[in-house]
Amino acid sequence: MRTVTTARSRYGMVIDLDRCTGCGSCTVACSVENNIPPGTENVTERTGITWMRVYEADDGKSFPDTHSVFVPIMCQQCGNETPCMSVCPQNAVEVDPATGIVGQIPERCLGCRYCMAACPYHARYFNWWDPKWPAGMEAAMNPDVAPRMRGVVEKCNFCQSRLHTARERAASTGRTAIDPADYVPACVEACPQRAITFGDLDDSDSFVAALAAGDRAFRFLSRIGTEPKVWYLSSREWVRNLSDRVVARTRKENVRG
């Protein structure tokens, strides 16, 4: 007898770029939540691990006419032909059919980094070292998230440990579906400007679905058809036009274009 016990949903995120101040709270909250260790002594933006990362993009104009925008970018949770999943030789990337979350399985990962090359959003990070915290700081690790070992790739998973907690809550009260208020990723909770909205895109009553359907909404690199589940909002046209630019991790090939 086979039974389906999990309600199906398609979790997604909407980030209002008109509200983001680029403060970095989301990046830090994400690192605290997901047991990402502090950078090593000579860490750079290429060797560091920042599942959630804020870029500054501008309209390409020079002083004093430059307009800038802060763009938080994490795994865009591609819903179609998920590039990292299709290239992984180890089957270490998986799209959860019940939630739509693109999961990374560090135990399976062999560290070839093919997925990093395949990811159009540069949202994947490689563990060049074993995770290390300053002496004693291990006590401040999140008990709900396992640290990853050296030689594997990792990325945002919409704080799956918080989904676990929400499911436990639901089970303890006998509900089958989780309470949306119980499942809020760390960056969403941390944003002082309330710029990030999270929820089930398939639930037509959800705030996130309404925002994603609005006129201000766009997705990065929508033309390549990966159907990301992370949407961005802006009333500024030049910001919405950023969607066609290549988001890259180094400055030389930066979003500045």
Binding site: R2, T5, D96, A98, I101, I105, E107, D144, A146, Q160
Partner: peptide
Amino acid sequence: SVHNNDRACIDCHK
């Protein structure tokens, strides 16, 4: 495999 066919890695791994 008998009682829940809707499983994903993230269901049991953290």
